[in-house]
């Protein structure tokens, strides 16, 4: 465990907690894409099936359980508890355009043609694009609440830190996982435009709004 990986996991956790607290405290999930959150629940579920087959550490197991629990809590809040505030009219990204290609790719490009490994690969590919419905929603409405921006920023930082983690591991452990690295790169690139807006607008105290 190096510092990049630990800070990456931490910012991932912070992102999720920010969003959970935002929804819970404001009793509203306005501006949040339920589709992205549902995709993340699928991502965690398909990736962490190794909870049943493979013990790595208490840290590893604990974080996996927390991520899964949080992702389902999020889906429950959006589609059940605070359903009335969910902005479904603006959450119109077609998720089949993400799920189908990533599923097909997971069958074609994987480390090992076994059910668990294919599901793991699928989750890596799907995670890299799962934020698109949320980014699409922001671009459609032309703005995001500041707290939603913080969430997106922390989530983007997480994968960026993982890139440094992979450089570190390659350098010092000779370890690399090409599937994770390529998908992680794609994922980070998707956040770049948002990073720019976040730094130039949100950090200067302005609400994130896109030019018309």
């Amino acid at each position: 465990m190096n510092i990049f990986r630990f800070l990456g996991d931490l910012s991932h956790l912070i992102a999720i907690v920010i969003l959970l607290l935002k929804i819970w405290k404001s009793r509203s999930c306005a501006g949040i894409s339920g589709k992205s959150q549902a995709l993340f629940a699928v991502v965690f579920t398909t990736r962490y099936l190794d909870l049943f087959t493979n013990f790595i550490s208490f840290y590893n197991t604990g974080m996996k359980v927390v991520y899964i629990a949080c992702s389902y809590a999020m889906v429950w809040m959006i589609y059940s508890k605070f359903k009335a505030t969910y902005d479904g009219n603006h959450d119109t990204f077609r998720v089949e355009f993400l799920v189908a290609p990533t599923a097909i790719l997971a069958f074609l490009v994987n480390h090992d043609f076994t059910p668990l490994e294919i599901l793991w690969t699928f989750s890596i590919y799907l995670e890299s694009v799962a934020i698109l419905p949320q980014l699409f929603m922001v671009s459609k409405t032309g703005e995001a609440e500041t707290i939603t921006s913080h969430y997106l920023f922390a989530l983007g930082v997480y994968r960026t830190l993982y890139l440094f983690n992979w450089i570190w591991r390659y350098q010092f452990e000779g370890f690399f996982d090409l599937i994770a690295i390529v998908a992680g790169l794609v994922q980070t690139i998707l956040y770049c435009d948002f990073f720019y807006l976040y730094i130039t607008k949100v950090l200067k105290g302005k609400k994130l709004s896109l030019p018309a």
Binding site: M63, H111, A180
Partner: peptide, 10 residues
């Protein structure tokens, strides 16, 4: 070690 069968990352 390409082909990490043991995924230790989150």
């Amino acid at each position: 070690e390409p082909g990490a069968s043991k995924h230790d990352e989150l």
